[in-house]
């Protein structure tokens, strides 16, 4: 697959809000206001905000990965999907669910997105999301600039993770 030209306007946009029980109406209202400028696909979760594009409540993980891989821009809530998108070699546009808006039971997505934004690993949008359309339109150039400078995600070593866990569990059991 050839890398998209950062000077070309994006065409395909995938939006995902996760599997949780909290609706994310704020993001979906902003997506609904994008009009028909893009080929949109939205995984909308429990929200009932009307959308004119394909918008299933939930999507299988394999389909979602395929759609995110093929998309010019991925817009996501600040869940674990953020890392999935980053490991696909992309920079996601992220919106954190906020407790005070009834979008989640706590603000861990707010803290996480601030962290990722500071690191240049994600583009964060806040407030009423009036800037979503502009962020999507300019994302290819922003993404190209961030990808050129940001640190790459570290290698995953699950065997090492288990060696550490089993060692610590053994130490814990021995101390009792």
């Amino acid at each position: 697959m050839t890398a998209p030209n950062p000077h070309d306007p994006p065409r395909t946009v995938v939006v995902t809000v996760g599997m949780g029980r909290w609706p994310f109406d704020r993001l979906l209202r902003a997506v609904g206001a994008l009009g028909d400028d893009y080929d949109l696909f939205v995984q909308r979760g429990t929200s009932d905000v009307p959308l004119a594009c394909p918008a299933p409540r939930f999507v299988s993980p394999s389909e979602l990965r395929d759609r995110m891989q093929a998309a010019d821009v991925v817009v996501t809530h600040a869940g674990n999907t953020v890392r999935l998108v980053q490991r696909l070699g992309k920079v996601p546009i992220c919106v954190a669910r906020e407790q005070r808006r009834g979008e989640m039971a706590n603000d861990h997505q707010v803290q996480f997105l601030r962290h990722e934004q500071r690191s240049g690993l994600a583009v964060g949008l806040w407030g009423e999301l009036d800037d979503l359309a502009a962020a999507i339109a300019g994302h290819p150039a922003v993404e190209a600039a961030l990808l050129a400078t940001r640190p790459k995600p570290p290698e995953i070593d699950l065997d090492r993770a288990w060696r550490l866990l089993l060692h610590e569990l053994h130490v814990e059991a021995s101390s009792r």
């Binding site: 600040a78 869940g79 674990n80 953020v82 890392r83 039971a105 706590n106 603000d107 861990h108 997505q109 803290q111 996480f112 601030r114 962290h115 866990l165 610590e168 569990l169 814990e172 059991a173």
Partner: peptide
């Protein structure tokens, strides 16, 4: 039975209630 609680990657600071309970009673 030993219990391992895994903090997800997007936990930077305060966790949710289920995570706090499980982390508290986890072996590790």
């Amino acid at each position: 039975v030993p219990r391992v609680w895994v903090e997800t990657f997007n936990i930077i600071d305060r966790q949710g209630l289920a995570a706090r309970v499980c982390a508290r009673i986890a072996t590790l």
